[in-house]
Design a protein around this nucleic acid. Structure first.
Ligand SMILES: [Mn+2]
Ligand SMILES: [Mn+2]
Ligand SMILES: [Zn+2]
Ligand SMILES: [Zn+2]
Lengths: 151, 151
DNA sequence: TAATTATTTGCAACTTTGTTGCAAACCTAT
DNA sequence: ATAGGTTTGCAACAAAGTTGCAAATAATTA
């Protein structure tokens, strides 16, 4: 397996192919901004906020483009949103099962108070909740705040 | 028990006293804006966003005052915040056990997709979550979205 | 009750975050 | 290589949130 080595990217060619593939699979044209933002999600182990992406890409892309790219990715089921107590939307990569308008990210999220990293705890399945009579759930978000394993 | 009847308020004198009492108990001076905002929370059965309060109070108070009042109330444990998937902070009255810097609102929240009302489901206690090794929870937010009992 | 002190408010000015329309640039397919 | 559809960046705007400070209000003291 060949490895690409330029100063901007420490991805293997397989990773690159997979990024292109994710876009194509979702009928999205392969553009610089979409590739770069997907790369960021792949290399960053945790969730990213709009602002994180803006910083990590430097001045490379317009703010509007980032907003639109994130929207598109959410719609296509490539990333999902995570509500947080401090009310800043964060985004993380979906598993392969998610698709256009159909998310299946039924895992618990953890936001570290100290390092501020947001984890997708894929192994922790969203618990059952017994709602009062008449309430019909369609989505359950569980966000745990505390001290993470690295802090 | 006497009842106050003017066009602005359908509160009993007991309610009014209790509003004053909540403020005094928390070492807050009793001002028009604080009384009015607390009143809104008492009469509205559900959570309110900053914007709801701005609308319901008309032009009566400055936007900044509302921001500061909500902050103060959260700090004192009079209201608590509710994270929502659409990322608009909402606030709801705490039970009496909450106090300065020490919230005990361990109940599930429900946001209706249709009428958009946010409920504190006081009877539904936050479920246990088994976190992976090394993660120490300090707060668990459970937000359920769906169709409410009135929709 | 009146004067004094401490707290809160409103305003202005500003920053950050998010939205929209449109022409130029880019990607894809022929 | 070209044509057609899509995406991007820009500009202009709207909404949300923050800060400093002087004036107004509430609490305390005399
Ligand atoms: Mn996740
Ligand atoms: Mn609540
Ligand atoms: Zn941490
Ligand atoms: Zn409803």
């Amino acid at each position: 397996m060949a490895t690409l080595h330029n100063k901007f990217c420490n991805f293997t060619s397989m990773d690159m192919l997979s990024i292109d593939h994710i876009l194509k699979r979702n009928q999205l044209s392969v553009t610089d901004s979409r590739k770069k933002i997907l790369e960021l999600f792949k290399e960053h182990n945790g969730a990213l906020a709009h602002n994180d992406i803006e910083k990590k890409t430097g001045e490379k892309f317009d703010r509007v483009t980032i907003y639109r790219t994130l929207q598109t990715f959410v719609e296509k089921g490539i990333i999902h949103t995570i509500p947080t107590p401090d009310n800043s939307v964060r985004y993380a990569l979906c598993k392969d099962e998610c698709s256009k308008g159909h998310h299946h990210d039924n895992h618990v999220h953890f936001v570290c108070d100290i390092c501020n990293v947001t984890y997708c705890l894929d192994s922790v399945v969203t618990p059952e909740v017994n709602l009062p009579q008449g309430f019909k759930p369609s989505l359950i978000d569980v966000v745990v705040t505390g001290r993470c394993k690295n802090c």
